[in-house]
Design a protein around this nucleic acid. Structure first.
Lengths: 110, 110
DNA sequence: TACCACTACATAGTAACGCTGAATACTGGA
DNA sequence: TCCAGTATTCAGCGTTACTATGTAGTGGTA
């Protein structure tokens, strides 16, 4: 992924993961896979795990350890009410930014 | 501005400034003022000047010192061809991200 | 047994960026 | 003389994503 996208993901990636979790509980490995499906091909696993640690520490998700048949136990993350609130805040900020940029794009020719 | 917006601006603010410069040459103080008009009320002046230094060092803008009647000389920045290319790249990355998020937003209920 | 692929999580160190807070410099008006 | 407005610069900080690596568990296969 380009350096540009790397910088643009800062702050946004957390919102993306929260949005994915809003669709249903998931564990880290699964989330990285879903991100790849979503087109974020080159997001490093380490990045996702670090992000999950952060949102867990901020109390945005509930965590449950679930045994797996295919490897080490999974840490399943579920968005809780606080997480939903954080997601709402994210969409609000994103909406503002997207709106401003849409303006700028038409205003500024191409 | 919230911490959330601060993080989200990373990488994006540069694109915003490039887009503003695409509308015509401008100097730092003027750009911060335009940003405020655009709704980015709390962007620190220091942030804008640091950003301008960066894009100058990367050769995205041409710089000219112009005397001012109201204070120290202005550094007027003009987007050059390389800058326009960077702006195109930005819009491309932004387009991808905005598209993905629009998907996620509808997909994910609210 | 030994090895490998896949699954699954974790972490230390680094780079980049925006913010805070302050300093500097020039003009004009109270 | 002091202050407000204009205009730029910089050191130090916190946050985030990336790189690179390590650790574990399971199943298949030679």
């Amino acid at each position: 992924m380009g350096k540009q996208m790397t910088e643009m993901l800062k702050g946004t990636l957390e919102g993306i993961v929260l949005a994915l979790l809003a669709l249903g509980p998931a564990y880290g490995y699964e989330i990285t896979a879903r991100l790849r499906d979503q087109g974020f091909a080159d997001i490093a696993e380490g990045t996702v795990y670090a992000l999950l640690v952060r949102i867990e520490q901020r109390g945005l998700v509930d965590v449950e350890k679930v045994p797996s048949e295919k490897g080490p136990p999974r840490k399943v993350f579920t968005l809780n009410p606080q997480g939903r609130e954080a997601l709402d805040d994210f969409w609000s900020s994103w909406g503002f930014l997207a709106d401003r940029l849409a303006h700028l794009k038409t205003e500024g020719g191409q």
